[in-house]
Structure formats: C-alpha cells, structure tokens
Simulated assay, not measured.
Amino acid sequence: MMEEKNAYTIKFVGLKEGKHQFDYHIKDEFFEFFEYDDFNTADVKANIELNKKANMLEFTFDLTGVMNLDCDVSTEAYDQKIQNRLELVVKFGEEYNDDHEDVLILPWSEYEIDVKQYIYEAIVLAIPQKRIHPGVEDGTLNSEILDRLEDYQPEAENDNKDEEEIDPRWEDLKKLLNE
C-alpha cells in the first residue's frame, strides 16, 4: 500500500519549465483510501497536464471512463460514461492554503504535490446525481421492479371524466384548442 500512497505524488522541483504529462489508470482500489463505495466498478483514465512556470504551476485534469453504478429507479447495474475537466493553479507563499476552489497555495519549501484528492473529486463530480439506467429512459429495460412500479401507478384521470358531468363551455374551449 505504501507504493499506492506515493503513486499519485508529482515531484515538480526537478522538472523544467513547460508542459509535462502524467497518466493514471483509476480502478476500484483507488477509492478504498477515500472509503467511497457508491459504485460497483470503476475504469477511468486520468490525464494530467502540468504546465510549470517560473512562479506557479498550472494543472489540467482530464478524466474519461466508465463507472458501473446501480440505477436509482430499477436498482439494475449499468455502465455510466463519465467525463470531467478540472483546472488547478498552484502558487507559492508563506503557508499552505486551499481555501479557494481552483487555487492552491503551497509553502516555498514544498517540492511535490499529491494529486490523488483532485482526481477523486473530479471523478465523483462527474457522476450524475440521479442515476438512471438508459433502458429505463428509453423503455427497453425489463425489470421486475419496473413492473411492480407500473402496477402501483395511479389510474389515469381519463377514466373518471366519463362519470363527471362536464360544463359545455369547457367542451367548446377544448374544441378551440384542438383545432
């Protein structure tokens, strides 16, 4: 596990000014550190570009991949494609400060940065809040739960209209709408 801990640490002190590329393949084990298990499986590629400048670092995190999630409606598992981009500017100062969302201040003495937290946040933010199986949306998913939900749907209001007497003025207005 020690190697895993340092796997997401980028040492920027020895790098020349300019752009540098770092690629990571994120699997299920990555999320154990964060105790995040709100998914079945993960297969995400994280491409990080570091643009080193004389007085600051600019990171661009591009994440693409697939997370296998459980549908909120049917509880059926499905593959959710995810994609996200996160930009981070690292400046140097007297003390550590991460109060701002996209600016991090590191002490002058720092020589490396752990990007694990930023990868994690970018992935979690890319997962939709409401998880709906594509088969639920297009009606192609056959599921016992969906069948049960359909059985408990309220009856259509059209059945009750025959029993009620409708004001003839409303009928005339409806005819105008339909023309």
Rank of each mutant, 00 (worst) to 15 (best):
H20Q: 09
Q21K: 14
Y24C: 12
Y24P: 05
H25K: 14
H25W: 11
I26G: 12
I26N: 13
I26V: 15
I26E: 01
K27F: 06
D28R: 05
D28Y: 06
E29S: 15
E29Y: 08
E29H: 14
F30Q: 00
F30A: 07
F30K: 03
E32P: 02
F34E: 13
D37E: 14
D37A: 13
D37R: 10
D37Y: 10
D37Q: 10
D38Y: 04
D38P: 01
D38H: 14
N40C: 09
T41K: 13
A42G: 08
D43H: 04
D43M: 01
V44D: 02
V44R: 02
K45Q: 08
A46K: 00
A46R: 05
A46N: 00
N47K: 08
I48S: 03
E49M: 09
L50T: 01
L50I: 09
N51C: 04
N51W: 08
A54I: 06
N55P: 03
L57I: 07
L57W: 01
L57N: 05
E58R: 01
E58P: 02
T60C: 06
T60R: 08
F61V: 03
D62A: 08
D62W: 05
L63I: 14
L63E: 07
T64S: 14
M67K: 05
M67E: 02
L69G: 11
L69K: 10
D70C: 09
D70Y: 14
D70I: 09
D72T: 11
D72C: 05
D72S: 06
S74C: 13
T75L: 15
E76N: 12
